[in-house]
Design a protein around this nucleic acid. Structure first.
Length: 462
RNA sequence: GCCCUAGUAGCUCAGCGGUUAGAGCGGGUGGCUGUUAACCACCAGGUCGGGGGUUCGAAUCCCUCCUAGGGCGCCA
């Protein structure tokens, strides 16, 4: 099949007076007496291409079927546009109609639709300027994440989607089963999992971290980047039940090395959005009412503030602010505390580290003070925590003791403990929720607008 | 899980006890036009989210359910 030239190419270099073949979806079509105008977009870039159609050269069945939403291919000559709103346009010589769209029923109009409405037509919203811009930026971030780690000698590891137990306590689990739930096999009144697919209970992963640690203690620097599933009943614009998470894990990295890496990582991938998406950012800035270029530059230019938890608490206590959640040593930082630190006190990203052990996960490395663990959170203005990470507890006895203290089952963690028993090494890592970063970079207020088909509590359409 | 707000035409909304429920956009028809979310005229389009109640009378007040959005918690 003949391959169309991406419309992006027409705007990136000079095609004036050249014959080209393009294809895409009509954003609008205006019929005139002598000329018709069609606005064609193929998603390759923010811009659309104006097609100029001399009505006398085309039969009625072509002209009658040019409507918003239709898919066409056009062969024609690129010329400078006499119109003010575009530099170039295409004089059509041949038009192929691939798919019509009945304007009486096609839901998208050539006007701004509410994001709420677009969520109800998730199968069509990639055709909008809003959503295509978000998807392009999401792609750039994903690619930049791989580039960043690949260029630094990290290996991409595929951790399992189905897991045998809640190995982090990171959240509520989705159970996986092939049982007919109307007729579950039972033994002594309890579900007989021996008859289930795996012969035991199975779940969707809430984090690849514990699995990826085993490969860090073999390949030294690794990362996993895949879907994650949490069954929390969270009903907010910041939570999804299915989201994508990046988790690097490095042997011979301590907490400070990890903070260095996290900062370099964020600056690197956000820079790529600035480098490649001026049009998308300008559009999203206008409609999300935030200067995204400014927002992104702000987290790239300056060094992030690094602050032990204990000092963060002291700053919050000294602030005399009337927080909804009172501040005292031992609490986990709430959104309002994070925002005070990043937006009012330091006015830039802040990395808080050495948190009280009680508010952090069992696997984090215990500090010598006996109270805190080597954890760190990168906090961004406006969004709060964007990265959470830690140095892992590599000392077998310490980890075993912690697992026992928290009442976790040792047999569930036998392999996780075993890598501390044989050739253990200091190691660290962090996790980044992709959609939260897409939210930050695009200014989308609702995380459901950062992924093509959002899944959330009570929400599973399409 | 808790709290708040809102569901009226395909979309965005007005109407908030009293005739036959309105506008803009979108759609159809006609006109006009190198147009720019074009423009002008006419036409079609609604069980006012579902159910129950109060009232002479309910889109409007009350109860309840559903759906959507926002705030908080949990978290990434």
């Amino acid at each position: 099949m003949r391959k169309p030239l991406p419309i992006k190419a027409l705007f990136d270099s000079d095609y004036i007076d050249q014959q080209v073949y393009v294809a895409g979806w009509l954003r609008s079509a205006r019929r005139g007496k002598r000329f018709s105008f069609a606005v064609l977009n193929d998603g390759s870039c923010f811009q659309s291409l104006q097609i100029v159609i001399d009505n006398s050269r085309f039969p009625a069945h072509v002209l009658d079927n040019l409507h918003t939403g239709g898919c066409i291919a056009v062969e024609g000559t690129v010329v400078r546009s006499p119109g003010r709103e575009q530099a170039i346009e295409l004089q059509a010589q041949n038009i192929t109609i691939f798919g019509t769209a009945d304007p009486a029923t096609y839901p998208l109009q050539k006007k701004q639709h509410s994001l709420e409405f677009l969520r109800t037509i998730a199968h069509l919203r990639p055709r909008t300027r809003f959503f295509s811009a978000v998807l392009r930026i999401r792609n750039t971030l994903s690619y930049a994440i791989h580039q960043f780690f690949q260029e630094r000698g990290f290996f991409y590891i595929h951790t399992p989607i189905i897991t045998a137990s809640d190995c982090e306590g990171a959240g509520e689990l989705f159970q996986v089963t092939t049982f007919d739930l109307n007729d579950v096999p039972k033994q002594d009144g309890m579900v007989d999992y021996q008859q289930d697919f795996f012969g035991k209970p199975a779940y969707l992963t809430v984090s690849g971290q514990l699995n990826v640690e085993t490969t860090a203690l073999a390949l030294t620097k690794v990362y996993t980047f895949g879907p994650t599933f949490r069954a929390e009943h969270s009903n907010t614009p910041r939570h999804l039940a299915e989201f994508w998470m990046v988790e690097p894990e490095m042997a011979f990295y301590d907490l400070e090395d990890t903070m260095d890496l996290a900062e370099e990582f964020l600056k690197n991938i956000i820079q790529k959005v600035l480098d490649n998406h001026q049009d998308d950012l300008a559009f999203l800035s206008q409609f999300n009412q935030v200067d995204l270029t400014e927002r992104l530059k702000r987290v790239i230019q300056e060094p992030y503030e690094r602050l032990p938890y204990t000092e963060a608490i002291a700053i919050l206590e000294a602030s005399k602010k009337n927080f909804q959640f009172p501040v005292k040593w031992g609490i986990d930082l709430k959104t309002e505390h994070e925002r005070y630190l990043t937006e009012e006190y330091f006015k830039k990203p802040v990395i808080v580290y050495n948190y009280p052990a009680e508010v952090k996960a069992f696997y984090m490395r215990q500090n010598d003070d006996g109270k805190t663990v080597a954890a760190m959170d990168v906090l961004f203005p406006e969004v709060g925590e964007i990265i959470g990470g830690s140095q892992r507890e590599e000392r077998y006895e310490r980890l075993l003791q912690r697992i026992q203290t928290l009442g976790l089952k040792i047999e569930d963690y036998h392999w996780y403990l075993a890598i501390r028993q044989y050739g253990s090494a200091p190691h660290s890592g962090f996790g980044l929720g992709l959609e939260r970063l897409v939210q930050f970079c695009t200014g989308m207020a609702n995380i459901r607008d950062t992924i093509p088909f959002p899944r959330a509590y009570g929400l599973l359409n399409f």
